[in-house]
Computed example of a mutant assay.
Amino acid sequence: MGYYVQVEPSVNIYVEDINPKSENVILFVHGWPANHRLFEYQFNVLPGMGYRCIGIDLRGFGQSDKPWEGYSFDRLADDIRVIVDTLGLKHFTLAGHSVGGAIVIRYMGRHRGYGVDKLALFAAAAPSFIQRPGFPYGLQANEVNQLIQQTYDNRPQMLAELTNMFFYRTLTPAFKEWFFQLGIVASGYSTANILVTLRDEVLFADVESIQVPTLIFQGIHDQICLPQLASILHQQIQRSKLIWFEHSGHGLFWEEQEKFNRELLAFLTT
């Protein structure tokens, strides 16, 4: 079931709500530059296990509205809060991939984890996506700047090159086209503005605020959110469990989907 939630005047967020009668709720927040369909291989399985899977398209992406402004972590976390309030969600699992992981961490800090019983982070872009003084991990700022420039110069080419960087496994042409289409339906400016946020914002204080059980998934071949970030999150979040994916890059939700779904289900039932 798909519908829209208005998060502020003239900005509507698309929501895909699968198995809405279930009280076991997982709210998924996708990564850059995709949309809720990134979790297709979870939505194929988890509802049959009795879970209500809610996927949203972040503003600027997928079927959501694409305003010119509003791509800070604060605003994106506030969008989630409006959705949580509108749907009346309580005692749910909040899950985020890549920049979606960063956004759900900001939600935990900014909204004090409202309604969240468990947190799941998949290759999260946190606590800092780039290297900074005193934090020698992540990408370099100039690498992100190059992606921003490529987005404005030739976004289709950038997305095509990103596909090969995103995954560790060899991809079929059909799968490459599927993944490319996830990114191409976003607006160019939202694609770039999320990168600006990733480059400029940090989540150290938000990470320290997390008190709920937290599951961390990380592909050891990830070239986008580097594996050291997951180790740091595991160290900083007291009630966390880190699971490595030995045959995955950034796209572990597909590359090792059976392990991904099995470990997520185990976390949800404990």
Results as ranks from 00 to 15, higher is better:
V99M: 13
L265Y: 14
Y189E: 06
M158I: 02
R199M: 06
N193L: 06
L215V: 02
T214R: 03
L233T: 05
T214G: 05
G134I: 04
Y107P: 09
A230T: 02
L265N: 14
L242C: 05
V7N: 13
V15L: 12
S98F: 05
M1R: 14
I224A: 09
K241T: 15
K176S: 09
P156S: 04
L147P: 00
T197D: 00
A77I: 05
I103D: 04
D78T: 04
R37C: 10
P20F: 08
D74G: 01
I103M: 04
G219Q: 01
G249N: 11
L242R: 05
L171S: 10
E8Q: 15
L147C: 02
I13D: 14
L159N: 03
E246H: 10
F92I: 06
F260N: 12
P47S: 08
D153W: 02
V45S: 00
Q149D: 13
F73K: 14
D17I: 08
R75W: 01
G2I: 04
V207F: 00
L265K: 15
T214F: 04
R112Y: 01
M108W: 07
R75H: 04
G88Y: 03
F135V: 09
T170I: 07
I26S: 12
H91S: 14
A174Q: 13
I26A: 13
R37Q: 15
L162M: 14
E69W: 03
K118G: 06
R132W: 00
I13T: 13
Q157M: 11
N154T: 06
M1C: 11
L233E: 09
L242M: 07
N44A: 14
V202P: 00
R59F: 03
R75E: 07
P33M: 11
G249V: 08
N44E: 12
G70K: 12
S187M: 05
P227N: 10
E263G: 15
R81E: 09
S64Y: 02
G31S: 11
S187W: 04
L182W: 11
S190N: 01
E40I: 06
